[in-house]
Simulated scan of single mutants.
Amino acid sequence: MPNPASSPAIAELRERIAHLEGPGGRARSVLPFGLKDIDRRLPGGGLALGCLHEVAGGGNGAVDGAAAALFVAGIAARTRGKVLWVVTRPDLFAPAIAQAGLQPDRVIHVEAGDEKALLACFEEGLRHGGLGAVVAETARLSMTASRRLQLAAETSNTIGLALRRWRRQTEAGDFGQPTASVTRWRVSVLPSRPLPVPGLGRARWLVELIRCRAGESADFELEACDDTGRLALPSEVADGSPQKEIGRRIASR
């Protein structure tokens, strides 16, 4: 008789359980988005704490890059404690991330001289253990560096958010390379919903979960973070499928 322990299904189940467990076999705590359509796609029902996650803009422009930064700010805003935000370019705009719920008095802003120094600050912040989240804006992230960051996050149970930014097209291709991150996200700007009066409606994003360890990829049409860091599902997107809604819009033109 075949040994049940050698079954591929059993092996896959054990791997999924191992991914859900932290050091010492304890279940990892998570940070839910508060939206069933997203949380049900994530193992444990939310973003795993004590892990590394990657976020990038959907295109190469500044608009999608800003949306990705606000998406990250909304996640960090929903953690407890100070947030370390490390950059190499001095362009972090505090009023914008405050609108996504991350108030300036919670942010420790560090300007690193180069990518090497940035990654060192990122790792040290994750190992500290007294922070709610650590955000680092980086162009490149190798497998070796990401493994060090993932290990540091596991040690302190602090969430690490790698905000991928690049200055040139050649750096953008690095985002597709394998890393040790638990999830990888891409955020693109969509037209906001028209208002019955002159003005701009709440910003909308196409948020793509393009990699999820022990989970599946998915994408969502969402309303941008409010001043508490919360996302919202547009009322007309009832089935959680942004492709269908976008297809209906195109067909109606």
Rank of each mutant, 00 (worst) to 15 (best):
V110M: 04
A18R: 10
A67I: 04
T183L: 07
R78G: 09
E137S: 15
V182L: 14
S188R: 14
C51S: 15
G247D: 15
F220T: 09
V134Y: 07
A9W: 09
G61V: 01
A133T: 04
L195P: 06
D37K: 00
L118D: 07
G132I: 11
A48K: 01
V110F: 07
A98N: 09
Q99N: 13
L161P: 10
R211K: 15
G129S: 08
A66H: 05
R202Q: 14
N60K: 06
V135T: 05
V110H: 11
V55H: 02
Q243K: 10
P198E: 12
L102V: 06
H19T: 09
W85Y: 08
R211C: 02
L190R: 08
S181I: 08
R148T: 09
V63H: 03
C225S: 12
R106F: 02
R184K: 15
D227V: 02
L102C: 04
A48R: 02
L118H: 07
E137W: 08
E115R: 06
E216V: 13
V134M: 04
S217I: 02
I17M: 06
A98I: 00
R16A: 07
P2C: 01
D91T: 14
L20N: 13
K82W: 09
R26H: 10
P194K: 12
S29H: 12
E137R: 15
G46M: 00
I38C: 02
R165T: 15
A62E: 06
T79P: 01
F220Q: 04
P8Q: 06
S156M: 09
V189R: 15
T144F: 12
R193A: 14
E171G: 13
V83G: 02
